[in-house]
Simulated scan of single mutants.
Amino acid sequence: MVEHSRSSKTFSRRSLHGQIAYDIGVRIVRGDVQPGTVLPNEADLSVQFSVSRTALREAIKVLAAKGLVESRPKTGTRVRPRDEWNMLDPDLLAWQFATQPIERLAKDLFEIRQVIEPAAASMAAERATDTQREAIARAFSDMEAAPDGDASIEPDLRFHQSILAASNNEFLHPLGALIETAMATSFRITNNEPGALQISLPRHRAVRDAILAREPEAARQAMRVLLEDAVEDLRRALPHMIPTP
Rank of each mutant, 00 (worst) to 15 (best):
E144L: 08
V51N: 01
Q96I: 01
A166E: 04
K74H: 14
A65M: 06
R208D: 03
A21R: 04
A213F: 05
N192L: 05
S5Y: 15
S50V: 07
I163W: 00
R224H: 13
T244P: 01
R214A: 09
A230I: 02
D44Y: 08
E180S: 09
S200G: 13
A106E: 04
T244G: 09
R224Y: 11
A166P: 00
D156F: 06
A184V: 07
A145C: 01
K74S: 13
M183N: 11
K107Q: 10
A145H: 10
I24A: 06
E111G: 04
D44L: 15
E134K: 15
A59T: 00
L16R: 13
E117S: 02
E42L: 09
A222I: 06
R6Q: 14
A137K: 06
R113F: 08
L88P: 01
R188H: 15
S8N: 15
D32W: 13
R214P: 01
Q19I: 00
F140V: 06
F110P: 00
F171V: 15
A166Q: 04
R82T: 06
S141P: 05
R203G: 05
L16E: 04
I199Y: 14
R72E: 12
L93I: 14
A98D: 03
D23V: 13
P239Y: 02
F159N: 02
A210Y: 01
Q96S: 12
E103A: 10
H204A: 12
Q221E: 15
T129Q: 11
T54K: 11
L164M: 12
V38M: 10
L201W: 11
H160S: 11
R127L: 10
